[in-house]
Design a protein around this nucleic acid. Structure first.
Length: 458
RNA sequence: GUGGUUGUAGCUCAGCUGGUUAGAGCGCUGGAUUGUGGUUCCAGAGGUCGCCGGUUCGAACCCGGUCUUCCACCCCA
C-alpha cells in the first residue's frame, strides 16, 4: 500500500515559480552585501549541542532541534537520570549535536576557530537555512532562511550607520517601500532600569516594555507590577510613555531622563551619533525611528538593537533584526572582539512582497523560446538552431515529440514562453524559420543560416 | 510549552436536525480545428470526505485520539 506522502510540520516544498522569486530576493540581498564589502562564508547545518545551548536564553534552548546520538545511545543513559524524567539532564546523555538556530552564534564560533586566518575587521555575509522547534504560524516556520551580514573586530558606530544604509539599499532595490527600521540601545534600557530603581529586574522590565504596541501603556504597567517591579519604579518610568516628536527630540527627552545613569547616557550618545549621521546621509525608502520599547533580540546584544517592521497595513512580524554584541566571541575564548550585524528574514520578506505584489512578472519566464516539433528531420534543424540561441543566452528548447501542434502551442502558452519557433517542411525547404510572438500573435521569418537578426531583435 | 481553529476532486469551496449512486466553478484530458495557444461549444477522467478508533440499522456530518493548517499566548525572522 502506498502511503500518503507528507512533510514535517513547519516545512515547505518550493515550486519553480517560488524558487525563482526567492532567488530574486536572495540575488538582491547578496548584491548589496557584496557592494558593502561583506564576504560569503558557510557553516555546517548542525553544530555541537554545547556550542548552541545557553546562547539564546531558556526559551531558545527549548526551541533548538536536538539530534539524537547514533548507535545504542539508550544503553549509555544513566539510570538515575532516566528515572528523574528530566528532559534537560537527558539531553547531554542522548544528544551531542543540534541543528543551527541562527547564523550569529555559529559565526562567533567560526571567528574564534579561524581567527588567525581572518583579516580584522572581518565582514562576512551568510545566507543559509536555520531551524527552530517552534509552533508554526503565518510567517513562522520550523525551517527558514536568514540572510546575515556581520562585522567583527570594529567598535566603530559607523558600522551601525552602514548597516542601516544596507537595509535601506536592499529594500529600495526590492521596491519594498514604507519599511520602518526601529532603533534602540541596550544601554538605554539598562539605564532606564537603573534610574527607576529596577536594575535587578532588567529582563522583566524590558520584556514588559516591549509589549507596548500590543497591550498599551496600561497593560505594560500591569505586566510590570505582576512581574514584581515596585509601583514606585513603574511610576518613575512614566515619562517614557509620553516620549514624542522627532528622533532628535526623543533623544533630548531621554537624555534628561537618563542624566544620572552613566550607561544610559552612553546609549543616548551612541544613538545621537547614529541618527545624526544618517540624517545627514539620508535614506531612500526606509524610515528610521527610535523606539525605546524595542527590547527584542537575543540576549547577547549589548549596544544598538535594530528591528525592521513591514510596511503599515501588512500583518507580519519583524522582517529583519540585528544589533551589537560586545562579547559573543568571548564565550568561545576570544576576548575584546566586538561584533555588530543585521539579519534579513527571507521567508517573511517573500510573504510581504507577495502580498503587495512586488515581484516582477518576468520572473515567471523560465523559457524564452520553444521550437515546435514537426518530426525527426525538422526537429534536427530546430535543435541546431536552438544550440545557437542557447549560446546567445536564450533559454530555449525543442518540444521533445511531434505531438499535435495545438498541444505544443498550449504547452508554450502554459509555460509563458514569449516566442515560439516553427520549422516545418515548408520552412526547411525555404531555409527559413518562423518566429511567432505569443503576446502579439504576429509572425516573422528569418533565415535558418543566420538567426542573428532574430536574436538582436530581442 | 498553553488555549483555540482548520482539513471534502489538482485548486477554491458547497454539502440542511446523521439517510441510499458526495456536488459546483476553475483546472486537466479528448473532440469541434490533419501547421498555430490564450475565446467559445461538446464530451470525459478524477474523491479510502486528513488518518485511526467509537456511537448508530446507517457517519463527510456526532464522540475520542492523532496528524496538519491557521490564530492568540510564549518567543521570534
Amino acid at each position: 500500500m502506498a502511503q500518503k506522502p507528507s512533510i514535517p510540520k513547519g516545512t515547505r516544498d518550493f515550486l519553480p515559480s517560488e524558487v525563482a522569486r526567492r532567488n530574486y530576493i536572495i540575488g538582491i540581498v547578496q548584491k548589496h552585501f557584496e557592494a558593502y564589502g561583506y564576504q560569503p562564508i558557510e557553516t555546517p547545518s548542525f553544530e555541537n549541542l554545547d556550542t548552541l545551548m545557553g546562547k539564546y536564553g531558556e526559551e531558545g534552548d527549548r526551541l533548538i532541534f536536538k539530534i539524537l546520538n547514533s548507535g545504542e545511545f539508550a544503553e549509555k543513559v544513566d539510570d538515575a537520570i532516566y528515572q528523574e524524567k528530566d528532559s534537560k539532564s537527558l539531553y547531554s546523555q542522548i544528544s551531542e549535536k543540534a541543528l543551527r538556530y541562527d547564523l550569529t552564534v555559529p559565526f562567533a564560533r567560526f571567528v574564534v576557530m579561524h581567527q588567525n586566518e581572518l583579516q580584522f575587521p572581518f565582514k562576512r555575509y551568510q545566507i543559509q537555512p536555520v531551524w527552530r522547534a517552534d509552533r508554526p504560524q503565518k510567517g513562522r516556520f520550523r525551517e527558514f532562511y536568514q540572510c546575515d551580514a556581520d562585522v567583527v573586530g570594529s567598535d566603530s558606530l559607523l558600522q551601525e550607520v552602514e548597516l542601516v544604509q544596507l537595509y535601506d539599499a536592499v529594500f529600495t532595490d526590492l521596491k519594498l517601500e514604507g519599511v520602518t527600521i526601529k532603533l534602540n540601545n541596550r544601554k538605554i534600557l539598562a539605564g532606564i532600569a537603573e534610574v527607576i530603581g529596577a536594575g535587578d529586574k532588567l529582563v522583566d522590565f524590558t520584556v514588559a516594555l516591549d509589549k507596548m504596541d500590543k497591550i498599551g501603556e496600561e497593560g505594560v504597567r500591569n505586566e510590570m507590577w505582576v512581574k514584581g517591579i515596585p509601583q514606585e519604579s513603574i511610576d518613575k518610568a512614566q515619562p517614557l510613555f509620553a516620549l514624542k516628536g522627532s528622533n532628535a527630540e526623543v533623544l533630548e527627552q531621554l537624555s534628561d531622563f537618563l542624566s544620572s545613569s552613566e550607561a544610559g547616557s552612553k546609549g543616548v550618545e551612541e544613538l545621537r551619533y547614529i541618527t545624526g549621521t544618517l540624517e545627514e546621509l539620508g535614506l531612500d525608502c526606509c524610515t528610521l525611528r527610535i523606539d525605546v520599547t524595542l527590547a527584542r533580540g537575543l540576549n547577547y546584544y549589548t549596544g544598538a538593537i535594530l528591528e525592521v517592521a513591514a510596511p503599515e497595513g501588512v500583518s507580519m512580524g519583524s522582517i529583519g533584526g540585528g544589533g551589537r554584541y560586545d562579547d559573543l566571541t568571548g564565550i568561545f575564548g576570544l576576548k575584546d572582539i566586538s561584533g555588530v550585524g543585521v539579519s534579513f528574514g527571507l521567508d517573511r520578506i517573500y510573504l510581504v512582497m507577495e502580498e503587495l505584489q512586488l515581484f516582477p512578472e518576468t520572473l515567471d519566464r523560465a523559457l524564452d523560446v520553444l521550437c515546435i516539433n514537426f518530426g525527426d528531420k525538422e526537429a534536427l534543424a530546430a535543435t541546431k538552431l536552438v544550440r545557437r540561441l542557447r549560446s546567445a543566452g536564450l533559454k530555449s528548447e525543442v518540444y521533445p515529440s511531434s505531438a499535435k501542434i495545438q498541444k505544443q502551442f498550449k504547452y508554450a502558452d502554459n509555460r509563458n514562453v514569449p516566442f515560439v519557433i516553427l520549422i516545418g517542411e515548408q520552412e526547411l525547404k525555404d531555409g527559413n524559420f518562423v518566429v511567432k510572438n505569443m503576446e502579439s500573435g504576429t509572425q516573422q521569418s528569418y533565415p535558418l543560416q543566420n538567426p542573428d537578426d532574430f536574436i538582436n531583435s530581442l
